[in-house]
Design a protein around this nucleic acid. Structure first.
Lengths: 129, 129
DNA sequence: CTGGATCCTAGTAGATACTG
DNA sequence: CAGTATCTACTAGGATCCAG
């Protein structure tokens, strides 16, 4: 464990290092942001292209998600004033740098999804009885 | 990039690898779960001990957060039937394994919080004009 | 001490319809 | 095509009271 990591652990959770995680998780932890980021990590995309690829997202939520990511500097929005209008979304450098940690979390999720579902089933079974 | 990582990227986001991330992020991405997990990563804790340490959490939300984590097999709840009753919460092995990825994300957040805030300020400034 | 039960509020998601 | 506007329904979260 390097010094940065130990710095993350050596504190009360009310301290800065931990507090700063919450807003980040609030951003990428919502229902759609990760999907958008992972999609854009492969290639930039137009609005409706994203909408088609993200199954079940509403137009409104895609707009809000993209605005949030754009505001945080993770996504770049490029408008081409043509007819019909064309808007491309791409990850910024900052957005790409987020992919690493997110992928790590994805790997963890993939690796343990069975354990988690088993634990849920066991918990629910206990709750029944 | 190793093969596992490329496996995470080489798919449409509607596919399994990406879909499985969402529920995990929904769990740890809520307002309190990460704080609880990070706290318990250092030492097991009693209910009110957690409540005191996590500034601003309500009794209700701590209960719900712990139940959720317990259901997912991340936290172990141990009841000591004494008077007064004593309940200890500790991370399971699964819970501890989650700390690594979460810490990685925390490091990313710490490293880029300034960039993010600058991007937000810039975005909000543009929105004004 | 450890919560369960209840009530209340504000925010947020989703569907739908409309616009440049 | 790429959104905005609006309306409704749901849920998260806090406050409070109660119980083992």
């Amino acid at each position: 464990m390097d010094v940065t990591q130990s710095a993350m652990l050596d504190h009360e959770p009310t301290h800065q290092g931990c507090r700063v995680v919450a807003p980040v998780l609030a951003r990428i932890g919502d229902k759609w942001s990760v999907l958008v980021v992972m999609l854009l990590s492969r290639q930039s995309c137009r609005f409706n292209e994203l909408k088609r690829r993200i199954d079940g997202i509403s137009q409104r939520m895609l707009t809000l998600t993209l605005r949030g990511l754009e505001r945080d500097g993770l996504v770049l929005r490029t408008v081409t004033p043509s007819v019909p209008p064309r808007v491309d979304y791409a990850l910024t450098e900052l957005g790409r740098s987020l992919c690493g940690p997110v992928i790590a979390l994805g790997q963890w999720a993939s690796a343990h999804v069975d354990e988690i579902e088993a634990a849920q089933a066991a918990f629910d079974a206990r709750a029944e009885g």
